[in-house]
Design a protein around this nucleic acid. Structure first.
Lengths: 335, 335
DNA sequence: TTGTAGGCGTTATCAA
DNA sequence: TTGATAACGCCTACAA
């Protein structure tokens, strides 16, 4: 796409490039008539300032990068849409990159975004990521960055989190109250803060009801991970009474295999999801799940990021914890 | 993030910037030892060439932009993952932008991507888009661009399509064979090629079976659009015998409202989706749908784009039509 | 094999 | 109010 440059416009109008530049950046002195003339002919010629060159000299792009571990499920897309709402309003465009739960690809994505000089980054870590060196360094170098949902401990950065402890506690308690005792908690990834909090909530709920703390087991977040877990358990003939899954897709995977093997949910075994997805109410049986405020999470993260961009250099990292809701449906209700 | 520039490296090593540059672009003569020394110290210093500056001079970025109308449903994410597979392999990074089914935002997205000088664009149009001027112009200016899934007629560009005619035909025929006669076809957007093809298939299936061609009605692609449509029909007491929806989410919306109003699917009314989503087999009742090769669509589009980038200027637009499959489940089977 | 210098398309700082 | 010119960080003839 051959560019028409500022020079072409200047030549045509027999004025200097700086005058043209001024016409496009209305903070400088310029006669109104000349500005209008320039703007008019420039548009006619199809000229638009080249943002690459602009970025090179201004060191800002009005682009924000978002990195997510996956977007097959509606969770992350919803968060992104929330973020877009507030960012678009402030004149920012949103570039999305997806890391396929691979820490290597995630790193590449972040670097690509930095390379393209986005003004800030919203990121949710992949389940694989454990080395934080790159991020620590980026933070030290004052790159505006907000972590959401999937974060790790001890990162001196702003974060938007969900109250995983509380809702894992309530979800577990609900299962206990329904009479299920031998409960397995599936976790998506060991290192994430979210996992630690959920596990703690899961165990504390057991303690409160004088039960020996149940077991947590690493599975993954995907539908496939749920399938694998439960297949193994069926094979081993060691089914628990209930399962608190790492995510809705994971829960649905579990239910699928259970049904395929002739088990009844919730009578033989109860299943609960996490992070309510669009699917939950439509699957059979309808899936109980913990609902998270996805759009809000995106909006909040975006606001934190904008603030950080504004106060570059002198900002205090803050963590915001969002509340949720328990949606009880058939999959966890003893008949 | 303060950049370490090529100058810093040159200064430190007491050599010229061009030598450093050469070390990073191994097509020039340079002594192996000096190259290695430079590369080593450069990495130590944390230097990486600034792609912005590089782009400015090289006019290419090894970035590909993808614009989709939505990504709440798994369809587009799957296509993107397919495209990423082949693009990553060739050293390209993939930047995704989402237009929320808004043609205005879509245009902004494309412009942002062009501004950031992506080497090419994969795009699926929003349901709102009808003005093609911008795209026609971009094509004329040789911007590598491949349209997939949601395209319009008469665009002199490469396209990857699904065989909507054929599978709308088979889907309709299946409904007819099951004994449903009064069938309504929900369409997502008037202007898209896909709509025209599906409508034709829908009508031809009626003709083949000597039925008066059924009605197509604009609804939209979303779950919400399905809900609205069927709510109105219930209110008007004008329910058809079967519905061929514009998408799975749309079909699920229809089923949800029907169930909520005490209707039985498929006995009172049959429902079929389109573009099989992960949800189809898990909803109740399991949803019949037309399965499309999403990953393949992404891969194919990416390959066409790469070819177009390589042969910039002298390429012949081609359309590739992909095949699909009918997944018959309970929602469309008369008991 | 290496260095010098001009240019990619802008904006910013001076003078005029 | 406008114009010349030096940056921004890099690549690449050309000269050395």
């Amino acid at each position: 796409m051959k560019q028409i440059t500022i020079k072409d416009v200047a030549k045509k109008l027999k004025c200097s490039v700086s005058t043209v530049s001024r016409a496009f950046n209305d903070k400088y002195d310029i006669r109104t008539e000349t500005r209008e003339l320039i703007l008019k002919t420039a548009t006619e010629m199809g000229y638009r300032p080249n943002p690459i060159a602009r970025k090179l000299i201004q060191q800002r792009s009005f682009n924000i990068g978002v990195v997510v571990p996956e977007f097959i499920n509606s969770f992350f897309p919803e968060v992104i849409i929330g973020a877009q709402e507030v960012l678009h309003e402030q004149g920012y465009q949103v570039l999305i990159m997806q890391s396929n739960e691979s820490s290597e690809l995630e790193l590449k994505n972040v670097q690509t975004l930095l390379n393209n000089m986005v003004d800030g980054i919203l990121i949710s870590l992949s389940s694989e990521t454990d080395n934080m060196d790159f991020y620590l360094n980026a933070i030290k170098e004052k790159m505006p960055m907000v972590f959401f949902n999937r974060v790790v401990e001890g990162l001196p950065a702003s974060k938007v989190l969900f109250d995983d402890y509380k809702w894992a506690f309530f979800a577990t308690e609900h299962l206990i109250m329904q009479g299920y005792k031998d409960i397995v908690h599936l976790i998506g990834s060991k290192d994430l803060t979210l996992t630690k909090n959920r596990t703690k909530g899961f165990e504390d709920a057991h303690r409160k009801h004088k039960l020996s703390p149940g077991k947590s087991e690493v599975a993954g977040f995907s539908m496939n991970s749920g399938e694998c877990f439960i297949e193994k358990r069926i094979e081993e003939n060691s089914l628990p009474q209930a399962i608190l899954a790492s995510s809705d897709p994971c829960a649905i995977g579990v239910m699928k295999i259970l049904k395929a093997n002739g088990f009844n949910v919730p009578n033989d075994i109860a299943v609960m999801g996490f992070s309510e997805s669009k699917l939950a109410e439509h699957v059979a049986p309808p899936l109980s799940s913990v609902e998270q405020p996805t759009y809000d999470m995106g909006r909040t993260a975006a606001l934190l990021l904008l603030e950080q961009i504004k106060n570059k250099g002198l900002f205090v990292p803050q963590s915001i914890v969002l509340n949720g809701r328990l949606n009880i449906r058939e999959s966890s209700m003893k008949l």
